[in-house]
Computed example of a mutant assay.
Amino acid sequence: MSAITRDDVAHVAMLARISLSEDELDRLAGQLDQIVDWVGQVNQVAAADVPPMSHPLPLTNVTRPDEVRPALTAEQALAGAPEAEQQRFAVPRILDED
């Protein structure tokens, strides 16, 4: 028995505002039902002694420490800019303020 029906697919498509033909509803219902079955198989294989993880390799704090280091001055950073304004890069406006 299929867990996902045409009506389920039609309802999700309506919520997502996706227009589907009758053939697409039938095809997607079968495909989504297969996906749910496969996820169920993965859940059966997962052992209770295996902790959930987000990465297959053990990683601990792979980011570098946040340290203050010498940086460019505003003048140095803006030296190659085509246009600067109030110690900032000047760029064309793309949004109007209303």
Rank of each mutant, 00 (worst) to 15 (best):
L28T: 00
T63M: 14
E67I: 14
P65H: 05
P51V: 08
A81T: 02
T63I: 11
P51I: 05
L20Q: 01
L15E: 06
G80Q: 06
D96I: 05
A47W: 01
M14D: 13
L28E: 01
P65I: 04
G40V: 05
H55E: 14
Q41W: 07
E24D: 14
P56E: 13
A16H: 02
W38T: 11
D26E: 15
R17C: 02
L59Q: 15
A77W: 06
N43C: 14
A16I: 00
A29F: 04
P56A: 14
V39G: 06
E22G: 08
A13C: 03
R93D: 11
V12E: 01
E85N: 04
R93T: 11
A10W: 00
A84S: 12
A79T: 08
V91C: 03
D23G: 10
L25T: 02
R64V: 08
Q76G: 05
D98A: 12
L20F: 03
A13S: 03
P65E: 11
E97G: 02
I94G: 06
P70E: 12
D98V: 13
E85M: 07
E97P: 00
R6C: 03
L72D: 08
A48Y: 03
V45M: 12
R88E: 07
A84D: 01
N61Y: 04
A79Q: 11
L59Y: 08
P51D: 10
V50A: 04
A47V: 01
H55T: 15
D96M: 07
W38S: 12
V12M: 03
V39I: 12
N61F: 05
D49F: 04
R93C: 07
V39W: 09
D66K: 10
D98L: 08
M53R: 15
D26T: 14
Q31D: 09
R27K: 08
F89Y: 09
S21G: 13
Q76F: 05
L25K: 06
V62I: 13
S19D: 15
R64D: 10
P51C: 05
R69N: 03
P58K: 11
A29H: 02
E24W: 03
D66R: 13
W38I: 12
L32H: 02
A79F: 06
R88T: 07
P70W: 04
L32G: 00
D33K: 02
V91I: 10
V91H: 02
E24P: 01
D49I: 05
A90D: 02
V39T: 09
A47K: 12
L20N: 02
H55A: 15
D7Q: 10
T60L: 13
G40R: 07
P52L: 13
P65N: 05
A84W: 00
P70H: 06
A13F: 00
V68Y: 06
A46C: 09
D23V: 12
W38H: 13
